[in-house]
Amino acid sequence: MKICITSKSNESDSDIEPRFGRAPYFIMANTETGEFETKENPASSATGGAGIQAAQEVAKIQADVLITGNVGPNAYDVLSTAGIEVVTTSGVSVKEAIEQYNKGTLEKVSGPTAKAHAGMGRGQGRGGRK
């Protein structure tokens, strides 16, 4: 099984990134081989629709599970259409998040956990107003 975790940096002991669409990195953990792979999130600096593009990337790398802090409505639509299980956690490292998931202490979400644009920083993401 492949687990994708949003991460603040490209190390498996770094903290998870609570924002999904604008997460700087995705870390993929393969539960069968115990291997880690990192990938930059191409959507992290998108002018708009970051969650959509990020979700498309997670589907492209064929993750079965996504562990993140929050997902917005558009990202959730894409992830659920792609059949990816979404679980949320906070304040832990990437490794700890995987342990939590394996122990079964993380709950699967059944809908968006944040409003659209919740992960935008100041001055970012106004690309919709064109």
Partner: peptide
Amino acid sequence: CNYNALAALP
């Protein structure tokens, strides 16, 4: 699409 108005899933 520059505005991510499309998501291409498999």
